[in-house]
Structure formats: C-alpha cells, structure tokens
Amino acid sequence: MDTTIAIRPVRLKPRLPALLEGWGPALVFLAPALVMLCLFKLWLIAEAVYTSTGTFDPGGQRIGNAGLDNFGFALSDSRFQWGLWLSLFAAVAKVPVQLALGLAAALMLRANTGGNAVVRAMVISPMFFGLPVTTFIFAYMFDANVGAVNAILSGIGLPRVAWLSTEAPAQMLVLGLSIWRDVGVTMLVFLAGLSAIPPQIANAAKLDGAGPFALFFTITLPLLARSFQFAVVLATLASFQILVPVLMLTKGGPTGATDLASFQIYETAFSYFDLGTASAMSLALLFGLIVIIALELRWLAVKWTYE
C-alpha cells in the first residue's frame, strides 16, 4: 500500500473514467449511429460533390471531369430554372396555408375534451396511411371519370374538371394532397406550443381587461413564436418532399405544370442517366433549401424564454 502521497498528475489512470470522459468510451456507444451518419449522410454529400464534377457514360461509368460545367449546364437550362421556381412556389404556397389551417385547428381543438381528442386523431390520421396510400386516395377522389369530386361538381351543376390533365388543377391537386397530409403535424406543433403557455399569463391579461381578440393577438400569438418557427421549418422541409404524387400521377405534366426540380433530378438520373448533371441539380436544390431554412430560422428567431 502506497502511503506516501505527493501531488501528482492524475491523468494517467488505469481504469474506466469515472464520469465517462473522452471519446474512448463514447465511441463504443456512438459507433452504430456514427457509421451510418458517415456512410449515408457525409459520404452522401461528398459523393454528390464528386459526381457533380464528372461526366458519365449511360452505364454509369465516370469517363471524364467536367469541373463546374454540370452546374453551369443545369442552372442555365430554362427547364431546370422553371423547376426551381416551381419548388419555391410550392413552398410559398404550402407554408402559409398549412400554418393557417394548422393553427386554426389547434385553437379549435385546444381544450382537452374527449370529443376534441377524437377530432385531433382524425386530423392526424392521414399520416398513418403513408404517402403512397394517401396518393392513391387522392388519385381516386380526383379521378376524371369515377372520382367523387367530379361527381359532386357535376351533381351541383358545375363543369367536370380534368384534374390531372389541366395545369392549375394538377398543381392544386399535388399541393392540396401535401397540405391535407401535413396539417396534422402543424396542428400538433401548435397544440404543444399552446399547452406550454402558462395559464397565469392569459388570466393576468383577462384581469387587465383583454377581450378574446386582444388576448389572441397580444398574448397567444406572440407566445407561439417558437412553435411558429418550428412549424414553418417543418412545412418548408415538407414542401420539398412532394415528389411522390408527381412521380405517381402527373409525371411533371401537364405541359410542365408540376415539373418540379426534384422530379427533374429523378428523371435526369434515372431516365437520362446523366449522373453528373443530376448530382449538380441535387446539390443546387439542397443548397436552395438550406438557404431558405436558414433565412426562416433567422427571421423567426425567438429571443425570450419563459422565466
């Protein structure tokens, strides 16, 4: 037993660190997630960058370097420019509508009653069916011949609409499907935000004589700022994920009305086998998405906390 104790550096320890310090023990636990993160997220981006600078034969073999030509080609292509505009338009159209509907639903179903719980479950139910199945449902509802929507339209004396072969209706259909599916998420975000508002604040405002409208605009809405930010970012992200109905139903048409950038990326890669250009387009779109989200996070930044 060593009883002479001097001040000595303690760093050299032949044992597991008491409090889990350092990368060593952490790596054991992080390994599965870290490997997947590196392979399918970091390498993915690296692969995209590398592929975007090459030219490929139709078999997918790299046959030369293209430098930044792929980017130049993609960005100067008027079809891709149109696709980018469409993607931006999808975000601009989807986000406000979805937020308004989600907030309205959350305010309406705010109280914790049994009936509200049932209605809430119904609002979020489309999420459980998965995007493919909800797309089937919309395809059926808006079918030109046997769709219920056209049946109702003609039943009340309005003209039938060829939903998938007319430009504006096709766009509305794709956006509508996306909004219908995602309103539930937005509602949940706002419901969580509403339940986090301390009731004392609203009570204090009521004692000060605030009416329901004043209460909403001066108390509820400002205090929902954090949920707002979160809901906007989620909705924006979702607005970049409306490729499924386009791929399944409209195939970019009619006459380019749903020719989204993401659809063009898919076509370029898997129909035209132009891997370099497809990767360049992917990166350009991803860059655009990240810029939009960064701007939103900045504009909607919240600078207060409860307590």
Binding site: I5, I7, R8, P9, V10, K13, P17, A18, L19, E21
Partner: peptide, 9 residues
C-alpha cells in the same frame, strides 16, 4: 469517484 480530480489524491 463520480468526478475526476485535476490534481491531488
């Protein structure tokens, strides 16, 4: 032993 000291014993 829940925390490591920087020096001492």
């Amino acid at each position: 032993g829940l925390e490591d000291q920087d020096g001492g014993a």
